[in-house]
Design a protein around this nucleic acid. Structure first.
Length: 428
RNA sequence: GUGGAUGUAGCUCAACUGGCAGAGCGCUUGAUUGUGGUUCAAGUGGUUGGGGGUUCAAGUCCCCUCAUCCACCCCA
């Protein structure tokens, strides 16, 4: 009966147990690297006015149309769990009048996001993103700096050989021009298009470019290229970005089909995918959004940013480098203090505190049901190599016993010297 | 929202055309009352996801439901 009614995590949401240390290491790496580039961390609320996403992300986008966790509060206001991070940051930029700060404003953030979709490999209803936004500079050098920072982060996490897909979706005028061309090209081939693409032919022809259907891909081989219709400003912007990325040895490939799903993107767009992740293969994506702040009722301020899917990043890392720790982290394995008998717990606490005061990770087995045996077994199961024993004999003699599980030896050392001895033994 | 697969012990999985629910690992105890890990011995483990139906008899067949996984879609 207890089994039957046992609680379970909500569909599409999971506990991070084994993965939690890797998440923490990824987050620490992000803080370190992004700070190095002059970014500072912000934290925005998990809940926002629903309208923020409708206007920011776009009513036509799938995210807003079908995937939001929306609800009415007690006053009847429509609120939503945030499905992405850029619109909230843009909102905060306006709310705190960051336009009066030295431009550009550079921020990063991390935390949970929510989309109501059917879960599958690499897709959760609550997932974690690490993002950064550079707001207030329209120029291509900011694009390059942001991408270089992103690659540096991935490198410091421990990834090698990740390739960035890069494209330009141009300014809104270029896109309107291109949509018309693409529609003209595809119209005669309606029979070869699936239902989804047919619908997009009316609503958002650009999205047809990233179709997975082989027949449609073949058809698109002969389609006009997006970059061929870019205006001269967008064109030269893109050229500078490519040229500078090459100068800084960024491994990128121009992908003509790369368009991204959020409505606010302009000019530079990019993403990194991996075939090792299954169908949900994007580990990060981003781009420029020169019209977003204005769409939200603010001044015309350009911006560029990215979002890293932390769950997918960790999953890919574990798949590519089994057993390896993120960022080469190697936490200190604890020394285990075992009081021999319940009446020596006081000494156990004292000894473990002395070790911690010296910066040595220590745990104490207060709960050994029987002297020694159980305590040692626990210490072993926790993966400790070094055990400090304190009992009747040791207290009487003013000593402790330091046991080395690796070769089964142990030594008796003076209690007032034991911290130093432990320190030298574990670092040997 | 659509489609497919799978739910048996804490974990990984067996159980023939319906016939006594099992194994390995884990866990507890002992061999060793102050010595772990190895070994040996014993023990602990379950309303077979839940509900209903067919049957003398259901883990097995039928219906419903829930969950997980994978794909479509979408994206991180």
């Amino acid at each position: 009966m207890a089994v039957k009614r046992r609680f379970q995590s909500v569909k599409g949401m999971r506990d991070l147990v084994d993965e939690a240390p890797a998440f923490a290491e990824v987050e620490e790496t992000a803080r370190r690297v992004f700070s190095l580039y002059g970014y500072h961390e912000v934290r925005t609320p998990v809940v926002e006015d629903t309208e923020l996403f409708v206007r920011g992300v776009g009513e036509a986008s799938e995210i807003v149309g079908k995937q939001m966790y929306s609800f009415d509060d007690k006053k009847g206001r429509s609120l939503s769990l945030r499905p992405e991070g850029t619109a909230p940051v843009a909102r905060a930029y306006l709310e705190h009048d960051m336009a009066s700060w030295p431009q550009p404003v550079k921020v990063f953030y991390m935390g949970p996001y929510f989309r109501y979709e059917r879960p599958q490999a690499g897709r959760y209803r609550q997932f974690n993103q690490i993002g950064a936004e550079l707001i207030g500079d329209p120029g291509p050098y900011s694009d390059v700096e942001l991408l270089v920072m992103l690659l540096r982060f991935l490198e410091e996490v421990g990834f090698q050989d990740l390739e960035v897909g890069l494209n330009s979706v141009g300014d809104p005028e270029c896109r309107r021009r291109y949509s018309r061309r693409l529609r003209e090209y595809l119209e005669p081939h309606r029979d070869d298009l699936g239902a989804d693409s047919l619908r997009r032919l009316e609503t958002n022809p650009l999205r047809i470019l990233d179709t997975k259907a082989p027949k449609e891909r073949e058809l698109l081989e002969g389609a006009p290229r997006l970059r061929e219709v870019l205006g001269s400003a967008a064109q030269s912007h893109f050229e500078v970005v490519c040229e500078q990325l090459a100068r800084f040895d960024v491994d990128f490939e121009i992908d003509n089909r790369l368009v991204r799903g959020l409505d606010y993107y302009t000019r530079t767009v990019f993403e990194i995918t991996s075939v090792s992740l299954g169908a949900q293969d994007a580990i990060l994506g981003g781009g420029r959004y020169d019209g977003l702040i204005a769409d939200l009722g603010g001044p015309s301020v350009p911006g560029i940013g990215f979002a890293i899917g932390e769950d997918r990043l960790v999953s890919l890392f574990r798949h590519l480098y089994p057993g390896r720790r993120v960022s080469g982290a190697s936490p200190q394995e604890p020394v285990c203090v075992v009081p021999v008998g319940a009446s020596y717990r006081r000494h156990g606490l004292e000894l473990s505190q002395a070790l911690r005061a010296a910066g040595i990770t220590a745990i104490c087995e207060f709960d050994a049901l029987r002297p020694l045996k159980v305590g040692l077994k626990q210490a072993n199961r926790r993966g400790c190599r070094w055990v400090v024993l304190i009992g009747e004999d040791e207290v009487a003699a003013g000593t402790v016993v330091l046991r080395d599980f690796e070769n089964g030896t142990q030594e008796t050392i003076q209690r007032d010297e034991f911290v130093d001895v432990v320190a030298t033994r574990i670092s040997a």
